[in-house]
Computed example of a mutant assay.
Amino acid sequence: MKLNTLLLAVSIASSAFSAHAAGAASAKFAAAWNDNPVNFVSVAVIPDVIADAQVVATNDGYLITTIKVPQDKELLVGVSAEIGLTTDTSLKGKDGGAAKAIADGSAWVLLTATPVGGGDSVNAAPGAVMLSKRIQELNATLGGVLDTCTDSTGGMDENGLMPGDEGYVDTPDGTIDAALECTTTDEQIGLMQDTLASHHFNFILPNMDAGNYEIRAHFMTRASAEVDIDEVSVAEGGTISGSSYAKAFVGKHMVTVQQVRAVKGSLADVDIVDN
């Protein structure tokens, strides 16, 4: 896995998926990035099933850089990442079979600062942030595709014989009852979406104590696939099966850290009130 680092002012040790650098020189800016197109991947798959099913998959990892902070300084951290989501759902059935196929993919990030050499980690404000999420639900009741139809009375013929009797003659009555006089094949419906987009979010670490810090961007992906069969429709003679597929991944990603000093009183957690 290739890791690139950029340090302005002076060089700062930086690494990905490692414990921590031995030390860091004072600097006002640090950055680390990874150009591996697919790093943290979650995939959930449900093949063609006729009963309720659910699969959930998660994956996580982090990108890390190190910076030295003077007393009572703020760190402004930006996290950027490509997020890819794929959702694919399909249903197949006939004779009134009903079901839902659901695919869910998401990716989010949490930014933390940990003193080099040991100490408690601090979560950057505003906490964990959802970078991208999609829930796709396919809901269908399927009657089937008409295959062949035969016009018949289905009852007593003109000689008083019933179906199955020797010599029975089935006389067409000029009308077709689809439920009784037609055969059907499965009807199928599906929906697939595949997206890749770049996302960015800013974090703040206020009033930091002096020292060297590991800045970690913790990424997590989640994929969920679910098929929910309508048992009532099956009990009434319908047939139905469903498939679901979900994939979420973090592609190229970057974390940038700036040592800043906020204007006094400018950092606040404010509720927006509608007038």
Rank of each mutant, 00 (worst) to 15 (best):
T183C: 01
V41I: 12
E226H: 13
M220P: 02
K100M: 11
V232L: 07
P172T: 04
T153P: 00
A16C: 07
C149T: 10
G265Y: 07
E187V: 09
A22D: 07
A98R: 10
D177N: 14
D228W: 05
S42H: 02
A9F: 03
A107M: 11
A246E: 03
N212C: 12
S14F: 05
E166H: 03
N34C: 13
D151K: 15
L146T: 12
L146F: 12
I135R: 15
R261Y: 06
G23W: 08
N159R: 04
Q54F: 04
D95K: 05
P126W: 14
I64M: 10
S233N: 08
L110I: 09
G237M: 05
V69L: 02
V273C: 02
L91E: 11
I102Q: 13
M192F: 10
A124K: 09
M162V: 06
T239W: 00
V250M: 06
V79S: 03
T148P: 02
R216N: 13
C182W: 00
D157K: 05
I46T: 11
A21K: 02
V145G: 11
D271R: 12
G154Y: 11
E82M: 07
V56A: 10
G127M: 11
D60V: 08
K73G: 02
G119K: 14
A225P: 08
D72Y: 06
